[in-house]
Design a protein around this nucleic acid. Structure first.
Ligand SMILES: Nc1nc2c(ncn2[C@H]2C[C@H](O)[C@@H](COP(=O)(O)OP(=O)(O)OP(=O)(O)O)O2)c(=O)[nH]1
Ligand SMILES: [Mg+2]
Ligand SMILES: [Mg+2]
Ligand SMILES: [Zn+2]
Length: 572
DNA sequence: GCCGTTTTCGGCCCGACTGTTTTCAGTCG
């Protein structure tokens, strides 16, 4: 079984090698675009290939004859001969040198050919000793600085982890009075699950002074560039921060440009081009050369006769076509949420009491919450057995009497055993108001077994929700192998909802699969899986996953009032 | 390499910053 990630990496490698071979830039872009298309595909490419072969693969934008054949080869043999051949011809060191910030294919090649270094460590020494023979002083210093910076870079950061840094930097910038409209953009504004850097925009009538103030932020350890309108720095946490500043009347264009995604921008600009416009962060140029200014972001889309596209949709996944046809979804919002159906109390591994969780829910103006403590076989998490849950019922009854406008539901997060049965007896399961079933063991089952296992759970009439359906943990663990279309069909047939788990390192179901599932008519619940009261505030991260998956309020059951929710889950 | 209600050939998003190339290449967003 081949992951889309592994497949995407093959084509990223292709692109890198083609760069070193000084191939046509458009050919390189084609490989990069294909890699990105594969990476952002919800369904597994292998599954798509099995369903419809090469032809089906070619329906994906950016994948044509040559690349689809390579995908087929990779699925069948586990490697791409052409890539292996190229890899053997290109010095490994050149590929490694390209990872240094500021070093591209041209410099990497020159470094290898002139200095004959085999790796970055060796390069550092040789560059210091004899670099000036081949490079001017500033260039030598810049490459050495790039090596230094590379060792401090942190890699992609969880969206939620970036938030406090973003807030602090914005607060600092707002103190200055040198700029206005300071806004976080890029992947952060699109609520992508991880961010590669922090991108900011602002307006100013004195941009040079504003940039100077920006780079003086005490937490910035390195300044990479600092120009008249743009600057790039490295934060002490190892994350890069980019800022662009333009005049007030260009703000809409700037916001649009820097929010991205790159793929969305290219698609938008290509469409504009075909209709006689040229888009940049400064405005929209007509053929005549006249510049249409866009003070507001909506102006950019309006000029192209498109509906406004929410940032979460800007991934070139069909949003431009939909905006032209006025068929964009009305995305679910945080304020639509009526309750949270997955949380743990101190009856299992949570750290707050049921009453404390309920109090927090009341503050959030929820109409219902489900206390879904773990079940017995998850011993490490203090899972309850049937007896334990019976005892807990008394406490639930007591707390429920204290809250008039909040229903506290008797629930559990029951383990799905390797064979698809649940680890609580039938008579115990029947007592719950709502049951979430999750996989917490034997993650490495084959795709066939895992799919069967999940479907057996879905077909169990006691089950209402499948919790964190893929089991992935961001930056730590890939999701287990599942035949998703089969799961989606089973959910619809059995009236079982899929959870969108809002825990910042889960965000599971992943956004691209939400979009797929929605096409099958699957319903979702967005839940925090909170283990204490403050984690109940993570709801926003689940909402953003749903939005990135094009979900509307009607797709999300936990936006409905309790009686409707109850009716929906009532089995046939 | 990909793609096509003007095309199966000939285009492919657009601009800023840096260094040293006096007019631009390399790298990046
Ligand atoms: N038109 C255009 N815009 C770009 C290009 N590269 C980047 N941008 C814009 C859109 C991006 O969202 C924005 C910020 O660039 P980043 O490299 O930080 O990407 P982004 O934040 O989307 O993802 P990230 O999480 O940082 O990897 O700048 C490009 O090649 N063309
Ligand atoms: Mg970014
Ligand atoms: Mg950036
Ligand atoms: Zn849980």
């Amino acid at each position: 079984m081949i992951s889309n990630k592994a497949l995407a990496e093959q084509f990223e490698q292709f692109a890198k090698i083609l760069e070193l071979k000084n191939e046509l830039s458009f050919k390189i872009s084609a490989y990069q675009r294909a890699a990105e298309a594969i990476r952002s595909q919800g369904e597994s490419l292998e599954e798509i290939y099995k369903r419809g072969g090469i032809k089906e693969l070619q329906k994906i934008e950016g994948i044509g004859e040559s690349i689809s054949q390579k995908i087929e080869e990779y699925i069948k043999t586990g490697k791409i001969k052409e890539l292996e051949r190229l890899k053997n011809k290109i010095p490994k060191a050149e590929l490694e040198f390209m990872e240094i910030p500021g070093v591209g294919p041209k410099t990497a090649k020159k470094l290898f050919e002139k200095l004959k270094a085999k790796n970055i460590n060796e390069l550092k020494e040789k560059l210091k000793k004899q670099g000036l023979k081949f490079f001017k002083e500033k260039t030598q210093a810049n490459i050495l600085r790039g090596i230094e910076i590379k060792s401090h870079l942190s890699g992609r950061m969880l969206l939620a982890d970036a938030k406090p840094y973003v807030d602090s930097i914005i607060a600092y910038l707002n103190k200055s009075n040198l700029m206005e409209r300071v806004t976080a953009v890029g992947s952060f504004r699109r609520f992508k699950e991880t961010v590669g850097d922090i991108d900011l925009v602002a307006t100013s009538s004195v941009p040079a002074r504003a940039i100077k103030y920006f780079v003086e932020y005490p937490e910035f350890t390195k300044i990479i560039t600092s120009g008249e309108t743009k600057s790039t720095v490295i934060h002490s946490s190892g994350i890069q921060v980019d800022l662009e500043i333009l005049p007030e009347n260009e703000f809409g264009s700037l916001l649009q440009h820097f929010t991205g995604s790159k793929e969305h921008n290219i698609a938008l600009r290509t469409y504009a081009q075909e209709h006689g416009f040229s888009i940049s962060e400064h405005g929209i140029k007509e053929k005549s050369g006249k510049l249409i200014l866009c003070p507001k972001e909506e102006d950019v889309y309006k000029t192209l006769k498109m509906d406004y596209i929410e940032p979460e949709l800007r991934e070139d996944r069909g949003e431009i076509e939909a905006a032209l046809k006025h068929q964009l979804p009305k995305l679910v919002e945080l304020k639509d949420v009526q309750g949270d159906l997955h949380m743990h109390s101190n009856w299992s591994d949570g750290s707050n009491s049921i009453e404390e969780m309920a109090q927090k829910a009341k503050e959030l103006k929820y109409k219902y919450i489900a206390i879904s403590d773990h079940t017995v076989s998850l011993a490490v998490a203090g899972g309850l057995d049937a007896k334990g849950f019976l005892k807990r019922e008394k406490e639930l009854k007591r707390v429920n009497q204290k809250f008039t406008s909040l229903k506290i539901l008797n629930s559990c997060e029951v383990n799905i055993k390797p064979d698809g049965t649940l680890d609580l007896p039938e008579e115990s399961l029947r007592r719950f108001d709502i049951v979430t079933a999750s996989v917490h063991s034997s993650f490495n089952q084959s795709k066939e077994m895992m799919t069967k296992r999940l479907i057996r759970a879905i077909e169990n009439p006691n089950v209402d929700i499948i919790g964190h359906p893929s089991g992935r943990i961001i930056n730590r663990r890939e999701g287990y192998q599942v035949d998703w279309p089969e799961i989606f069909k089973a959910c619809v047939a059995n009236k079982v909802a899929l959870e969108i788990n809002a825990f910042p390192d889960r965000l599971d179901l992943v956004d691209s699969l939400v979009q797929e599932a929605k096409k099958f008519g699957v319903k979702f619940v967005i839940c925090t899986d909170a283990h204490n009261v403050s984690q109940m505030d993570n709801m926003i991260y689940g909402i953003s996953v749903a939005r990135r998956g094009w979900a509307e309020a009607k797709d999300v059951l936990s936006t409905r009032p309790f009686p409707e929710l109850q009716t929906w889950f009532k089995k046939r």
